[in-house]
Design a protein around this nucleic acid. Structure first.
Lengths: 190, 190
DNA sequence: GTAAGGTACTTGGACGTCCACGTATCTCCG
DNA sequence: CGGAGATACGTGGACGTCCAAGTACCTTAC
């Protein structure tokens, strides 16, 4: 579980938004990614500099937002991975899905679903049930506690992160659109 | 180490780019993130839907590009984390940095630097040396093999990923700019 | 000059992600 | 209708990330 130090809840933020710095190190004088880009160009790799910056930016951006999300979820005893599974189930008619289906929708490895389901089950938030038709499959099913916690977690995430993602609304839309292109291109969906 | 299945080298790609799908699951009919957004709006959380989509998009985008990068690095016996440390050192005058400094520049936890340095050292790519002035500090220093491998890895990453990040040049610039805003806001740099 | 506090690093542990295997079950074809 | 191949899960292992705690060393203040 990724994490970060700032011991404030999602409510108490200074300025517009800040939570998400790795470790306790103070801000750098210069943007390290811009610095890397400079190096790339200095070495004559101009045509790869932007791509390098994009890849590195994505890595860091993910770390930042994940830290913010986990900060909100930690008090609830959830991680983002487990929250995602919980919410996915809550959006389902029968509040249940075969493991494989969940993995496909969450776009993670089957083993990651097993991991999340095991921990959620230990917490009493889901139950595993044999699939009535397919003897190979296992259904993960939301419990009442699971549904309640998913709702609570969503409320807090909406309030603490999703409503103020640290970017202008236009930037947010742009980001989503650009990444959608990338995801489609990667074969995530048709 | 994140990973993915497609057993092609960075050279052999079909179409513009594809490598990066998690697991072996076929593409979904519908974009799962768009689907989640729909759900958010259906539940009345319209003001949080975009933020949710942005966060989820970043998670997935990171997984996709990381998988592509690691695919290229795996044959070299490197992970992206270790590669980053290697390259950082190669950009340094003395080819060496205190661990803490490296952690600050890479924006990761000190323990992550220890981890990477240990593995790189075991591979003979770096050496650890006591800091001449500061008895607490440890210098990570690039070896000749480390420098050579960093160069080779960079060549392959440039060719296999950075020059064709799977996005239009404009989209790449946009992405980097948007994320820079996010990073600055998060306190990564001043 | 010495004690208190801060900094640097390592270690151990919790999680998440993936892969590789092994097992059970389903499907489909000869 | 029976065997081959595909599919669904679980387990064990490798890595990366973080936190928390412990040790050593530097710095600052009294």
């Amino acid at each position: 579980m990724k994490d970060h130090p700032a011991p404030h809840t999602s409510q108490a933020r200074r300025g517009p938004l800040q939570g998400g710095r790795s470790s306790t190190s103070p801000p750098l004088e210069r943007d390290p990614i811009e610095e890397a880009e400079r190096q790339w160009r200095a070495h004559g790799w101009d045509d790869a500099a932007d791509g390098m910056a994009a890849v590195t930016s994505l890595m860091r951006a993910q770390a930042i937002v994940l830290a913010r999300v986990e900060e909100v979820l930690r008090p609830l005893g959830l991680s983002f991975a487990r929250y995602e599974l919980l919410v996915l189930l809550s959006f389902t008619r029968r509040s249940a899905l075969p493991m494989a289906r969940a993995g496909a929708l969450l776009q993670v490895h089957p083993a990651s679903v097993t991991n999340a389901a095991t921990r959620l089950e230990a917490a009493g938030l889901v139950v595993r049930r044999p699939h009535p038709q397919d003897g190979r499959a296992v259904l993960v099913e939301l419990t009442e506690e699971g549904r309640a916690l998913a709702a609570k977690a969503t409320d807090e995430l909406n309030a603490g992160v999703f409503r103020r993602p640290g970017l202008s609304p236009e930037a947010v839309r742009t980001l989503v659109d650009v990444v959608r292109e990338l995801r489609r291109d990667a074969g995530d969906f048709t």
